[in-house]
């Protein structure tokens, strides 16, 4: 490992962001306004000759945090985060339905932000923190949103539910007491073919006074 530059993120997840691709192929500067926007100036930390290295198409060893656990595995660059979670790490809460970034059944949080795991390469999530429905709570210790889905019977076949639960948690984290348009926009990236929207609305509306808070 090289280029060890432990950030706050990395301290929390236990490894360096700049060494997440073992072999040091990449350096990611997370978020924020980098220096030299649109001027082409390299940032101070950016000059890393190894960053032009091409990895794959065979397996590449990566590190990422999944539901609070640091995970290390070797995946081909073409493996999506969704398939890597389900098939390699046995984290099967996120569901593979449309696999085209439309239905929302694969919704997970990446560094706290809701994304479609089917539309992210797992290698792109290296060094980041992933939370799936399993990471929000367990059957014995459910997250408020999970409990509210049970209380309001907000599922039918249940296949879209893990994605809806994660999207709802993300919505309530952003808007603890969302308005009707905020609910529609906040859950606009998820489909339920059974049509359980009424129950899901009740879950979200519960956030206004019913004890559901953002996660």
């Amino acid at each position: 490992m090289k280029g060890r530059r432990v950030t706050d993120d990395a301290k929390r997840s236990g490894f360096s962001r700049r060494s997440f691709l073992r072999g040091g192929a990449a350096g990611a500067l997370s978020g924020g306004l980098a220096t030299g926007l649109l001027t082409g100036e390299a940032g101070a930390a950016a000059a890393d000759a190894d960053a032009t290295e091409t990895v794959g198409p065979g397996p590449v060893e990566i590190e990422l945090e999944v539901n609070g656990v640091a995970s290390r595995l070797a995946v081909e660059p073409r493996v999506t985060l969704l398939d890597g979670l389900r098939d390699r790490l046995d984290v099967t809460g996120p569901k593979r339905v449309c696999d085209r970034g439309t239905c929302g059944a694969c919704t997970v949080l990446e560094d706290g932000r809701p994304i479609y795991a089917c539309s992210r390469l797992m290698i792109e999530s290296a060094g980041r923190s992933i939370t799936t429905v399993e990471g929000l709570g367990s059957p014995d210790a459910m997250h408020d949103v999970q409990q509210a889905f049970v209380d309001h019977d907000a599922q039918q076949c249940g296949y879209c539910t893990p994605g809806f639960v994660v999207a709802t948690a993300a919505l309530l984290a952003r808007h603890p007491a969302p308005s009707e348009p905020e609910i529609e926009a906040g859950l606009g990236g998820n489909f339920c073919r059974c049509g359980t929207y009424k129950g899901i609305r009740a879950v979200v509306a519960g956030g206004k006074g019913g004890g559901v808070t953002g996660g």
Binding site: L29, A42, A51, T54, P57, G58, E76, P77, R78, I123
Partner: peptide, 19 residues
């Protein structure tokens, strides 16, 4: 998906060279 390689450049210059 078919297999492909992957590079994660750190600078615009590196990205342009790879592209």
């Amino acid at each position: 998906m078919r297999p492909f390689g992957y590079a994660a450049p750190a600078t615009v210059e590196q990205a342009v060279g790879l592209l």
